[in-house]
């Protein structure tokens, strides 16, 4: 019995208070959520929630079974990391100083981070990638002065033409 990371995609009806219903359940059942994103989808009546969490297989089953009981939930699927495309977006603002400027620029180039704001005192970069890539870039930036970080949490879609909209749970 080992802990591992799970990514679960959930389609919910797009009505007010839905996010609260889902997160309230996570809170009272004490699920440990590391990332949660919500967005509109291809159909106007549905929103998509992507949850990532770590725990035992039994924790994951419990989380899925508890989600299943919420009437606002339409579909649930665990996304296999190999069979899915997963990414996250980050904005990071670092101090702009003459002695570190070149190093930061080189690191950004290596990771494909795009400069989206540049001032005398600061550089803001945008990076899209897997959570690991983003973690690695943040780690590199710790050598300099990080002013602010904002990450979206992960979004994920399965490879190929399959969708999660009609999954038997």
């Amino acid at each position: 019995m080992t802990e591992r990371n799970f990514t679960i995609a959930v389609l919910v009806s797009n009505e007010s208070g839905v996010l609260n219903r889902v997160t309230s359940m996570f809170r009272r059942r004490r699920f440990n959520i590391s990332s949660l994103t919500v967005s509109e989808t291809e159909s106007p009546g549905l929103s998509r929630i992507t949850v990532s969490t770590s725990g035992l297989e039994s924790d994951k089953n419990q989380l899925i079974n508890q989600l299943y009981k919420l009437p606002v939930v339409c579909s649930i699927k665990e996304l296999d990391p190999i069979e899915s495309v997963t990414c996250e977006l980050m904005l990071i603002k670092v101090k702009n100083e003459p002695e570190t400027r070149a190093d930061i620029r080189d690191a950004a180039q290596a990771f494909g981070a795009k400069t989206v704001d540049y001032t005398r005192d600061s550089v803001t970069m945008r990076l899209t990638g897997t959570s690991r890539e983003i973690d690695a870039f943040v780690d590199l930036m710790r050598d300099y002065t990080i002013l602010e970080i904002c990450r979206t949490g992960i979004v994920s879609l399965e490879r190929g033409s399959t969708t999660i909209s009609k999954i038997e749970i």
Binding site: S58, N65, Q66, Y68, K69
Partner: peptide, 11 residues
């Protein structure tokens, strides 16, 4: 009837 009760406290 409630899947969340299965393996919740007793495996």
């Amino acid at each position: 009837v409630d899947g969340a009760e299965l393996d919740k406290t007793v495996a």
